[in-house]
Every structure is written in C-alpha cells, then in structure tokens.
C-alpha cells in the first residue's frame, strides 16, 4: 500500500475524508457482474466480474479505453440492459428494471423535443404522481438553479448544447434519484463550456444528496470531478484499479495546474494507455495497406 505512487499526494485531510466516505452507507453495490453481447451468433464478453461499491454522496468517475464497456456498465445500473450474472444492489435492493431512483443523463441529447424546458423538467415529477401545480413550481426552482429562467418556455431545439445538457441534468435530478448516472454528458461540448458544466455539476452535487456515477474518457475531467476513479480494462472489461483522487475539495480552476493533478494524470495514463493501443492498431492497418500494390507503373514512391 505504501508503495502506491499517488500516496505522497494524499494529505492527512484527504486521507481523513476518504476514510469518512468509506464509512458512509453504500448506495450502489455492484457484485460479480458479468455481461456478454451476442455478436454474429457468438457471445462476446463485455464485462467480467465487476465488483464495486459507491457510497452515499460520493462522486465516482469511470474511465477506460474505448469499447471497454463503460456505457454498458452504466446502462446495466440504469436497468436498460439485462444482467447476465451477478447483481447490482441499490440501497440493498437488487436492480431489475429502470426506475426513478437511478437518473440518467445520456451523451446524445435526449430531451423530449415536443416539450418546453419546463415540461421536460416536470416530466418525471408528474410521472411520480405529483400534481401539475407543485411539479411546475418545483421545476421552475430547478430551472432557476441552472440559470435558464429565460428559457423555461423554449423548446429544446432553441437551446445550445450546454443548455440542453443542463436541462437533461436537472430533469434527472428533479426526480430526486439516489444515483445519477452520466454517460459522457459533456463530450460534445467545447472545452470552455465543458469546464463551466463541470463546475455547475460540482456545485449541484455539493448541495444535494446525490451519488454521481460519471462516465468519461477525458482523464482531466475524471480527476477534476471524482472522489474515486474506477479504471476499467478492455476485452473483456474488468476492474483494473480504483484510484483515490489526491485532491482537496472544493476544486478550483487552478486544480488543473497543481502537481498532485499532474501526478494523478500521469498515473492514470499509465493505467489506461489507450493511445498506445490505437497507434499499434494503426500500424497494423498501415502494414496491410502497404501490402496492396498501389500502381504497377510506379513500383515504389522512392
């Protein structure tokens, strides 16, 4: 344990905080989870024996190479995919189907285009049996919170990408889920907007009782946001390591420049090193291309 390269950055306060988190009640408990998909008649193992526990009000980020099953994991937790083996417990109860206790924000915009911003946010509230009037006033409070008062009666197609994702987030949060699942929600935003959204999200998270399970392939984003980072391995997806982020809270923009941040990033890169894989892949493909004769008149370009 002492030999862990990030230990030198874990200050007593951070250590103390981490220990306190682990003493909280577990909210999301993933146990020995397996998942395969059928591909051309053959089963392809996507997730193998995933074990992970998220505690109350924790901010978890999930990183891993492309195709390692991050989205699949989130969809399993949401109940949008069926579990092959193992189980997922929410507050001790096994997950069987989608439910309002697990909100989800998708990468692609998933607002209902025929509803105004207000109606989108009210959707889950009305579904849970709340009266229209109460739902409306509650929705407006959420809309205020993310600074979209002016757009309460606009349709989604009138909003920018960042605004849409803000609405998607409060639509999920209005339902007061225990866990908020986010699958690369800011991937389509430009860097400046992304940072703003990350700050929004942290602020909201600090102020309400919610556990966030945030999927990303952007390591900076993961480090900036998370308490702990779940690093997955690919083919099949397995837990490689759960990394404690050695950064104090609250996090500021300067956090990105701190030595602890850099060290964490270097360490995570060594764990994920998905760039290497892609380059290797590319090399292979290039070799294949080179084997094809280009033009018999010109045997060699040199």
């Amino acid at each position: 344990m002492n030999s862990h390269p990030l230990n030198e950055w874990i200050t007593p306060e951070i250590q103390d905080r981490n220990e306190r988190i682990l003493k909280r009640p577990p909210v999301l408990d993933i146990q020995k989870l397996h998942k395969s998909f059928e591909h051309k008649g053959k089963p392809v193992e996507v997730l193998r024996e995933i074990d992970f526990t998220a505690y109350k009000r924790e901010f978890i980020c999930v990183v891993g190479p492309s195709g390692c099953g991050k989205s699949t994991l989130a969809r399993l937790v949401a109940g949008l995919e069926t579990i092959d083996d193992g189980q997922i417990l929410m507050d001790g109860e096994a997950v069987k189907a989608p439910g309002p206790d697990r909100g989800m924000v998708f990468q692609s915009y998933s607002l209902f285009p025929w509803m105004t911003v207000k109606d989108n946010v009210m959707f889950g509230l009305v579904e849970s049996g709340m009266s229209k009037l109460t739902a409306e006033s509650e929705a407006l409070q959420w809309i205020d919170l993310v600074g979209l008062e002016k757009f309460a009666d606009s349709y989604p197609h009138q909003l920018s990408g960042g605004m849409k994702q803000r609405v998607a987030i409060i639509r999920a949060l209005a339902n007061q889920p225990k866990v908020l699942l986010m699958d690369e929600p800011f991937a389509a935003l430009d860097p400046k907007n992304r940072l703003k959204m990350q700050q929004y999200l942290l602020e909201i998270w600090q102020n309400i009782d919610i556990t966030i399970f945030f999927i990303t392939h952007d390591l900076d984003e993961a480090i900036y946001l998370a308490d702990r980072i779940l690093v997955l391995d690919a083919h099949p997806g397995r837990v490689k390591e759960v990394v404690n982020v050695p950064l104090p809270r609250p996090r500021e923009e300067e956090t990105f420049l701190s030595p602890a941040f850099m060290a964490t990033k270097v360490y995570l890169e060594s764990l994920v090193h998905h760039e290497d894989e892609e380059v290797e892949d590319m090399e292979d493909k290039l070799k294949m291309v080179r084997m094809v004769s280009v033009n018999s008149d010109v045997p060699d370009i040199f």
Binding site: A78, P98, G99, G103, F112, F123, A172, N175
Partner: peptide
C-alpha cells in the same frame, strides 16, 4: 430510455 429512467412505462 430517458423516459424509462424517469419512471414512465
């Protein structure tokens, strides 16, 4: 899927 996660079915 969004509506499912919002408790509608």
């Amino acid at each position: 899927e969004a509506s499912l996660t919002l408790g509608c079915k």
